[in-house]
Design a protein around this nucleic acid. Sequence first.
DNA 1: CTGAAAGCGCTTACAG
DNA 2: CTGAAAGCGCTTACAG
Lengths: 345, 345
Amino acid sequence: MKRFTLKEIGQQLNLSPGTISKALNDSHEISAETKKLILDFTQKINYIPNFSAKSLKTGRSNTLAIIVPFISSSFFFDFYEDISHILSQTNYKLILLQTFNDEKKEKEALELCVQSNIEGVIISPVKNDSSLSLLFYMMEQVCPVIIFDRINHQLDTFKIGIQNNKVIYQATEEMIKNRRENIILLLCKDIGGNVSRIKGYKDALFNAGVPFKEENIIEISYSSPKDNIDDELESKISTLLNRPFAPNALLSTTDTLSLKVLHILNKLKVKIPDDMNLIGFSNTPFANSLNPSLTTITQPTQLMAEKSVELLLQMLKKKNKKNYFEFETYFLDCSIEHRKSTSSL
Amino acid sequence: MKRFTLKEIGQQLNLSPGTISKALNDSHEISAETKKLILDFTQKINYIPNFSAKSLKTGRSNTLAIIVPFISSSFFFDFYEDISHILSQTNYKLILLQTFNDEKKEKEALELCVQSNIEGVIISPVKNDSSLSLLFYMMEQVCPVIIFDRINHQLDTFKIGIQNNKVIYQATEEMIKNRRENIILLLCKDIGGNVSRIKGYKDALFNAGVPFKEENIIEISYSSPKDNIDDELESKISTLLNRPFAPNALLSTTDTLSLKVLHILNKLKVKIPDDMNLIGFSNTPFANSLNPSLTTITQPTQLMAEKSVELLLQMLKKKNKKNYFEFETYFLDCSIEHRKSTSSL
DNA sequence: CTGAAAGCGCTTACAG
DNA sequence: CTGAAAGCGCTTACAG
């Protein structure tokens, strides 16, 4: 077994390399007999084409990229799996890149895409203006870019995200209906969607006539699921619990925080749901097997993935038509999955 | 902003493309001043090289591949993350490919590696002889291959796996010491390591003088974590539970099965650990937050990842020396993490 | 220290 | 329907 080139195959079959190439690409220029001859032979020798040569010549790679902050975050993981599954039914391959919430790594990831002739990018960017000029350049000259999840980014393109304020409003409203009015809102610091989340929270309180307390908003600063924020989180929660009017509900707005806070509340012997209602933001499939099972806000991951791919493929089809698209931002609805960590008093 | 080629940069600076290339690769042939001139300019214009051209010319890609059955399985996920982290400290890039336990997909994945000039592969193969000739060809002519996890594969190379029989022996022994003698051993059908697992299980029973019962071994056939095996699993467990001498311990040997079985036992109102001790095979970080927290057999994932990369890099260094290596198989030790799903009677 | 030139393995416009 | 030839953007052995 040895690796053949088109030239060598041509020599073996007394045909030119160009003819072999055309046959393998099923060109209408080549006769059926010649095609069969060539295909039989290439199959026999298990011809494996040289991807770099093809890509260099054509400028195409048949590969899309998905760029996420952390693949270990279950939402991003699910999203990746969904994209991966959808693309497996097309001719496109997919590569996964992580930024670790680091602008430099993001730039490297995008440059890798340019280097590798990537044909389309789906990205949840590090910050609202991260890699802005590079992304703009890519949109103009390299390939279409779709932004998901962190849709406050300034690039003008299609964006797919969720109705943060709406779902936080619903969750808050539900807790109030359950007679839980002293609600902690737990946020990851400096995330684009926080403004919208706080708005949903405040609006729900306001409409129910519940006074807003500044101290009930906890922001934790971390950039990786592996950052050690447990102590800080525990101390902030303890402080609130030891106040005269201890909170009786907690709404956690990221995946990472939800699991940590459950663990901490268990450790602090806070009874869930009796003493504290808990709603997490999470896509973990284990929510059902947690102790107690966790009521979660679930993002419509699959829908987001489908829409992202759909829009990207649309843009790929019209690739040479500048200003062809009216870019839109899609806000999808989340749902609340009720489990044992919430109940009425 | 526009994409430059070396030729264009040469024109701008009145230098030849070759000189630009050498300067960017920090060749000793180029003077310090010229290098500075070129680097300043390429930085200014944000020169992004064409990867395909480089790869075509050199036959190298600076990229390694990891091929796993399912990235959604937490062991493979952790392993991938570890490999990814280790390689981020080198010059190598990493691509992730999944086989979904499908030999055809595995072949495609490996061919993609060949096409893309991948320089090394770390794989957990589908079956003991899957893609054997292709893997052999790759080892001979393309790049080194390391096998991990499913180390019964017939390819002659370095392999990194675990001491299945030893850890299953320990877990079984522990259960017996806890006076749990009627132990279900739960296996995924047709996995290479099962022989060794069953041996560990039987040996521990034998040495403790506990009679072996064929019916206590349950094999479930599935190839994906998403396969719907819940009903089958539930019915098989129910059957055993309804026997005159109901089992009082369960040892689950895969990640997927461990979480499912916990869920089913909870559903069947079996009290854990009182009525049933449960040890799972799992790397999930949530084991602590499960209901009840799950005693697990944990694979030394990071060690396995480190060893895999170490061996691969060693082989890469000596790439042109055939028969340079005495291939070995490494069997690493697992540990048992005790949590609330096990206790003595 | 710099440059000219060949060539990696494909594809494709063009010729016949 | 098939082939000859140019060229994608790099690298590198060789010349000077």
